[in-house]
Design a protein around this nucleic acid. Sequence first.
DNA 1: CTCTATCAGGACTAGCTTAGTCCTCTTACT
DNA 2: AGTAAGAGGACTAAGCTAGTCCTGATAGAG
Lengths: 151, 151
Amino acid sequence: MLRLSKMTDYAVAVLAHLARGPAVQTAPGIALATLMPEPTVAKVLKTLAASGLVTSLRGARGGYRLSRPLADIPVAEVITAIDGPIALTACVEGSPTVCEQQGSCPMSGRWLRVNDAIREALSAITLADMLESTPPPAIAAPPMMAIEGVL
Amino acid sequence: MLRLSKMTDYAVAVLAHLARGPAVQTAPGIALATLMPEPTVAKVLKTLAASGLVTSLRGARGGYRLSRPLADIPVAEVITAIDGPIALTACVEGSPTVCEQQGSCPMSGRWLRVNDAIREALSAITLADMLESTPPPAIAAPPMMAIEGVL
DNA sequence: CTCTATCAGGACTAGCTTAGTCCTCTTACT
DNA sequence: AGTAAGAGGACTAAGCTAGTCCTGATAGAG
């Protein structure tokens, strides 16, 4: 399914929300506004802060704010921040589990090109791109299903 | 991690193996040659047969053979055959679990562009591309780790 | 100076998905 | 007929993800 973690999806939504409204916003506030579970939003924000996509302000009246405008954040960077480096196959995951077919498997390293192609595609699209055009969010009923079977 | 299922990795390896050696090969034979677990190879082959990438020949002296040369098989097609349609986010997975943030979430449908970019990237690369160039499989030691942190 | 709102960081749990196995049935060559 | 193969599906186990919670650190407000 080549799936992305749900956390990444959350992260994009959170970043988008931060770009609107007040510059500094708290985790609970964003959770409330986006209807996402609060602890989850907090977790995502912490991760984003750790990778520098958002800046945290501690203490009372603290919160998070975007470190950069959305136009300067490629989708790839968000994915990397949340899910770790893009690495399609088990062989490539950097996991300590070394593929034991290495010797016989004709695939060793072959996924590199594919991986690169995806990385480039994702680096070329910024969050601003994602949000700007395309049809407005609300076609009410089942807007997300339309995408099914794209490939 | 944007991970691909291990099954897809197996599938590519199996297809590559089918392209070499005799035209018709049995599941146990391929398993033996590639050192992959036999039931798993069988399962992958059945799935590939179901989506038409390989043709099965039943009965004694049966087996599987490629339906098309590798140059005519885009990586995207293998992924789709094994993992189902490429759909990055939960919203998009075609799962019955409708994203309950649909109304408030500014993301609805926004992943479409990203999804398309990936689909195109994966459609442009054929299995033949994957196998032809790039360094030979064996640099012995840790060839797959080199790819880590690509993004 | 103290109080409190807020983030930091990690431990923990439950559920789901994937990988992998196995069994039975069908097909068709010898 | 007998047998070598695939078809198709049920089942199990392990790993990962999502989600929750707790404790500590920070810094503004009063």
